[in-house]
Design a binder for these strands. Sequence first.
DNA 1: CTAAAACCTGACGTTGACGTCAGAGGCAAG
DNA 2: CTTGCCTCTGACGTCAACGTCAGGTTTTAG
Lengths: 135, 135
Amino acid sequence: MRIGELAARSGVSVRALRYYEEQGLLDAYRSGSGQRHYPESAADRVQLIQMLYAAGLSSRTIAELLPCVEAKVNTPESRARLAAERSRIDAQIAALTRTRDRLDAVIRLSGSPDSGCMWIADQDVAAETSHSATP
Amino acid sequence: MRIGELAARSGVSVRALRYYEEQGLLDAYRSGSGQRHYPESAADRVQLIQMLYAAGLSSRTIAELLPCVEAKVNTPESRARLAAERSRIDAQIAALTRTRDRLDAVIRLSGSPDSGCMWIADQDVAAETSHSATP
DNA sequence: CTAAAACCTGACGTTGACGTCAGAGGCAAG
DNA sequence: CTTGCCTCTGACGTCAACGTCAGGTTTTAG
C-alpha cells in the first residue's frame, strides 16, 4: 500500500510517517518513481511506534529498541535496555496513579457540603483511598 | 523564603518557578525591592504542579484547575473539569499498562532460547499476562 | 564598606514531533 | 491527452516548558 492509505489505516498523518522513516523507525520499498510502498504489517508497526511515543519514549530510544524486530539482536545490552524502559514506564504508571488518587480525593471533597474544594495533603489521600490499587 | 531556597527545596529551577508565576500557577509576595517571597506551603504547591505536568496537563489546564485551591470555586464546571482530567489520566494509565505488558512479553520471549526476540501480537500478550492487573 | 552571591527583567535560544507550504513529478479515468 | 488526486523533496513554522545570557539592583558575609 502507499503512504496515504497507511496513514488512513493507522490514523497518523502522512507527514508523521515520513518523519518516522527519517528517524529510522519505519522503512519502505520504493517504486521506480520513488514512491513509498508498505506491506500490510506496517500498520501494526506504526501502532507500536505510537504506543511507545505515548509512553514517553523519544524517537532515538525507539530506534534503539526497534531493531529487536527486524534483526535477531538479543544481546544483554538490548535486554537491559528493554528492562530499563519497562521500569521507567512502571514508575510512570505509579506516579500517574498517585496523581489520579489525589484528584479523586479532591473530587470527593468537592462533593461534600462546605469543603470549598481544598487540596489534600498526602496522608489524607492515603486515608481516603483504600479502593484503587497502588501496588 | 526566597526563590532560590524554594527551588532547592522543591527540586525545580529558579527559571521554572518564575515561569509558573508567569503562567498564573504560583504567586509570590514581593518585598519592597521587588524580590519574591514564598510561604512554606509553596513547596507543596510546586510539587502538585509538577505532578500535574508529569500527568501530561498543560499549564493552561493546570491554571484552570488550580483556582480550586485559593478561591472556593466549586461549580459544576470545575467539577466536570476535574472529572474530565481524571478520566484522561485513567486512560493514560491503561494505555501505559498495555505498553508495559507488551514490553514484558517481549522481554520474556527474549529470555527463551531461539525466539530471536519477536514482537508479540495482542492476543499473545493477553494470553501471557495473567499477573499484572489491568482493571 | 566592599566583594561575592542571589535576585530582578527582558529577550533570545533549544528541543522534539510534527504542520504547512512551494514547486515538481506520477498515475488511473474519461 | 488532460484533468484531478496522490506523492515527492526541501525547507521553514509551531508550540510548550523551560535554558541561557545580558545588564543592572539587592542582600549577605567578612
